[in-house]
C-alpha cells in the first residue's frame, strides 16, 4: 500500500527531481533464459564440477570459475529455504513511493537445485515453514516479457 504524505510545494524548501533513463542492453547468453520465462519455464545453467544450477543463469560458475553451458529445466516448484517480511514502511526503489509491504519475500530451492527468490502469496508468516513446497504462479502468457517478474509470486502447495 502506497503511503502518501504532504510534500512542501515551495522549491526554496524542497523540489522534485524526476528523471527517466532509457537504456538498451543485449541479454547475450541469458537470452535463452528470457525465452524460457516467456514460455512459463525456469531454466538454469549447471556447473560441471558440482552439478549446482544457477538462476539467473551464468556462463561461468561463480564458485568454481569454470564454463557452464549445460541448460537444465528447474520445474515449477521449489522448497522454501527462508522467508522474510518487511514490517515497516519502506521506499519502493522502482517508484520512489513509500509503501507498506504485505507479502513476504522467499528464497526457494527449485527442483533442479537452483535457488531464486520471489514474492510469496502467504501473508501470514507463521504459516511459512522451511522445507514447505511452493509453486510458481505466472503472469498470463500475453503479459510475459522474459523477465524474472513474469513469475508473479510463489504459492504454498496444499
Amino acid at each position: 500500500m502506497v503511503l502518501k504524505k504532504e510534500e512542501p510545494q515551495d522549491p526554496a524548501v524542497a523540489f522534485r527531481y524526476p528523471r527517466v533513463i532509457t537504456y538498451k542492453h543485449s541479454l547475450g547468453y541469458q537470452s535463452k533464459f528470457a525465452h524460457a520465462l516467456k514460455m512459463g519455464r525456469i531454466i538454469a545453467t549447471k556447473c560441471p564440477v558440482d552439478g549446482r544450477c544457477t538462476v539467473p543463469p551464468r556462463i561461468v560458475c561463480p564458485m568454481h570459475h569454470v564454463r557452464q553451458t549445460e541448460w537444465v529445466d528447474q520445474g515449477q516448484r521449489g522448497k522454501l529455504i527462508s522467508a522474510f517480511k518487511i514490517n515497516f514502511p519502506m521506499f519502493d526503489s522502482r517508484t520512489g513511493d513509500l509503501k507498506t509491504w504485505e507479502y513476504p519475500i522467499v528464497a526457494i530451492e527449485l527442483e533442479g537445485s537452483a535457488r531464486m527468490d520471489g514474492w510469496c502469496a502467504e501473508t501470514d508468516t507463521s504459516k511459512l515453514k522451511t522445507g514447505m513446497i511452493l509453486e510458481a504462479i505466472w503472469r498470463p502468457p500475453e503479459e510475459r516479457k522474459g523477465r524474472v517478474d513474469d513469475i508473479l509470486y510463489w504459492k504454498p502447495v496444499e
Binding site: R19, I21, Y23, H25, H35, T95, G96
Partner: peptide
C-alpha cells in the same frame, strides 16, 4: 534478445 529498459527516479 535486446531489451529496452526504463529506470525511473
Amino acid at each position: 534478445i535486446v531489451v529496452e529498459v526504463q529506470a525511473y527516479s
